[in-house]
Simulated assay, not measured.
Amino acid sequence: MNAARIIVLIAAGLAAAAAAYFVYRSSSGAPATVEPQIVQAATVDVLAARRDLPVGARVQASDLYWQAWPEDAVSPSQILRERSPDAAEQYAGAVVRRAISEGEPISPRFLLQAGEAGFMSAVLSPGMRAHAVPITAETGAGGFILPGDRVDVIVAYEAEEDGNSRRRYFVSETVVENARVLAIDQVFGGDEESDSVVVGETATLEVTPEQARALALATERGQISLSLRSLADAEGGPRLVSTQPDPRVAQPAPDPVTPYRNDDGQVVVYRYGQARVTTVDEN
């Protein structure tokens, strides 16, 4: 009986030892790997810039694209694809009011579209001025001058020859060469629909301040005509050709000349550097 009890005790001890060994082995092994759970955040498509857009740049449809953006980070000012699916085409031709970085979401307040206040000032190159001149179909190349073209500005006026005959004749002079046409009436450049003929009453040109003064004087002096330049001859900026001096401003006088009386009883004098003939009252 004692032997049987001893055998049972030995078997129980061995079982306990085996259980302890297996518990030790399982506790000393590498911990089980837990796969992290990735939660996909909801996104929406917002209109963004494909490249850096500086102030004054004209936006093209290819400059814009739809970018996935976290839905909970969308600003009310951003343009969503679900609301405006044609926004890229709608903003083509707009002018950048505030510099936009590549990949930055677009806001309507960053852009100026044709017809909005400040659009023309954003289109102008630094240091340039927008000056309007009157035109007709005849003086505007039959309506074939479009925004973005380059033109020469010509003024035609009637002049009077000095001397006894007082003969009158017509003169035409080129005032400014290679001026860029910004608009015809309210039609601006950069629009896809501007390829048709545009006949208007005014043409807005991009010129320097000095050229703007010359054009203002030329407009008062005679009729303005625009001569369309070839695309191959449109390099460079506008050039001032004639300043059209104001006849009311005193001009440098020539060397002093003693007035003399001619055979017709008239006295020849100098005024504004040119000979003038005037009749002298004998009384």
Rank of each mutant, 00 (worst) to 15 (best):
M1G: 11
A3V: 09
A4G: 11
A4D: 14
A4C: 07
R5D: 11
I7Y: 12
I10S: 11
A12D: 09
A12I: 15
G13K: 10
L14F: 09
A18N: 05
A19Y: 13
A19E: 11
F22Q: 12
V23I: 14
R25E: 09
T33K: 15
T33V: 15
E35N: 04
A41R: 15
D45L: 11
L47M: 11
R50L: 12
V55A: 10
V55L: 10
R58C: 02
Q60F: 10
A61P: 01
A61W: 01
S62W: 08
D63K: 00
A68F: 08
D72R: 14
D72C: 09
R83F: 07
G93W: 04
G93T: 06
R97N: 11
R98I: 12
A99D: 08
G103Q: 06
P105N: 07
L112N: 04
Q113L: 10
Q113W: 09
F119R: 01
R129S: 11
H131S: 12
P134F: 00
I135A: 06
A137F: 08
G142P: 05
V153A: 07
A156S: 14
E158T: 14
A159H: 04
R166F: 13
R166C: 11
F170P: 05
S172W: 05
A183C: 02
I184H: 01
V197H: 07
L205S: 03
E206L: 03
E206M: 09
P209G: 05
P209K: 06
Q211D: 04
E220F: 11
E220Y: 07
G222C: 02
L226V: 04
L228D: 06
R229T: 03
S230I: 02
G236K: 03
G237F: 01
P247F: 00
P247C: 00
R248S: 11
R248Q: 10
P252R: 08
V257W: 07
T258L: 04
T258C: 03
P259F: 04
D263W: 08
V268N: 06
R271I: 15
Y272D: 13
A275Q: 06
T278A: 08
N283F: 10
